[in-house]
Amino acid sequence: MLRVVLVGISIIISYVFQTTFSSGISFGVAAPNIIMAFVCSYALLRGKKEGMYVGFILGILVDLFYGYYDVIGINAFLYMIIGFVIGMFHEIFYLEDILIPMAVVGVCDFLYNFIYYVITFLLRNKLDFIYYIKAIILPEMVYTIFITVFIYRLLMYFNKKLEAFEKRGEKELD
């Protein structure tokens, strides 16, 4: 229960950070995608089920307020799939290594922006893909990878604390 509340709070915090602070810390046009870093880090730390839920909720939040032409479901779907797929790596990878989340976030952010480009730009006949890769996708990707270092460490720290706390609770119950 405590975990649900804490995750709920951290979802709101990451969403609000993305909408308020990200433009303040942006270089040029590229602002980091804190939501992506959060979803990937969380999915890596907790597995596919929780990753899926967190991705879905954050995606719905993004769609509700900043959905493309007020259409709800595109971001929810993308973030949910990302949360689910990345969550499958939970059991495979050694989670202390920071390079893995960085690589994962990089790939996910690229794919997400690529699909988002196809849906919102390519279908409106804006074909200069190379330009958009250079101007938007790559800068955002690099910056998001950078941000991941902090977000992942922070999440890992709190996750450890929480897991220890949950174990203690279980022992007391026995």
């Binding site: 308020t20 995608n33 900043y66 988002y116 938007i136 955002e140």
Partner: peptide
């Protein structure tokens, strides 16, 4: 009070 989450559009709240 808020900005669109990606870098693709320019929408504010």
């Amino acid at each position: 009070i808020g900005k669109e989450t990606g870098n693709w559009f320019s929408i504010f709240t």
